[in-house]
Computed example of a mutant assay.
Amino acid sequence: MMLLVPADPLRPRRPDEHFRAEAAAAREAGLDVAVVDHDALTRPDRAEQAVALVPASGEAVYRGWMLRSEQYAAFTEALARRGVTLRTSAEQYRRAHELPGWHAASAALTPASVWTKGVMRADFDRARVELGTGPAVLRLHQVDEALLARGGVHPRPCRWRDSLEGGKPPAAPA
């Protein structure tokens, strides 16, 4: 078994400082540890470069910064070409990482949630109206009005809005 952790951006052959203790503990427990270039993983067509320091063959676990599902899929493919199999497949990662994938299993424990399948204003308005209002509204995206006006949604992370911030999404357009 091999533990894969992000590389330190300034010392690419060493684990990122945030994962250094885990890498050391894994080595002490007898596991192999390898680093991956997280920045390269987040760029199109750079997954091969990202895994260049990973030894060929074996089974691995990734413990690192979050990736978009398509980035993780490219990561698993690049590792597979080196004979390395991640314990969490790209499909398992997508189901656990994205709300539509895990929502059904946790719906009873999760605040009312809706999501869009597109990036158009109409998609956002439909989800916003379906979600409605309440004391705690889960906003799946913070919306940058300039991007929304151009048909896009800002890619910042999800966050809670509670009654201290008003707790209501903007009114749907007439």
Score class of each variant (00 low, 15 high):
M1T: 01
L3D: 07
L4F: 03
V5L: 03
A7C: 07
L10M: 09
R11A: 12
R13S: 14
D16A: 08
E17Y: 15
H18W: 09
H18S: 14
F19N: 00
F19G: 05
R20Q: 06
E22W: 09
A24C: 01
A24E: 14
A25T: 00
L31D: 07
L31I: 00
V33Q: 10
A34S: 06
V36Q: 04
H38A: 12
H38M: 08
H38D: 13
D39M: 10
L41Y: 04
L41W: 08
T42G: 11
Q49L: 05
V54C: 03
P55D: 13
A60Y: 07
R63S: 10
W65V: 06
M66F: 15
S69F: 03
Q71C: 01
A74G: 08
A74H: 06
F75L: 07
T76R: 06
E77A: 08
A78M: 00
A80M: 00
T85E: 09
T85Q: 09
L86D: 01
L86E: 04
R87D: 09
T88A: 13
S89A: 08
Y93S: 07
R94W: 09
A96N: 13
P100S: 10
P100Q: 10
G101Y: 12
A105Y: 08
A105K: 15
S113N: 01
D123R: 01
F124C: 03
D125A: 10
D125F: 13
A127M: 02
V129P: 05
E130T: 09
T133K: 15
T133E: 15
G134S: 13
R139S: 13
H141A: 11
H141W: 13
Q142Y: 13
Q142F: 11
A146M: 11
V153C: 07
R156L: 14
R161W: 15
R161T: 10
D162Y: 14
G166E: 14
G167R: 10
G167S: 14
G167V: 04
K168G: 14
P169G: 14
P170A: 13
A171M: 12
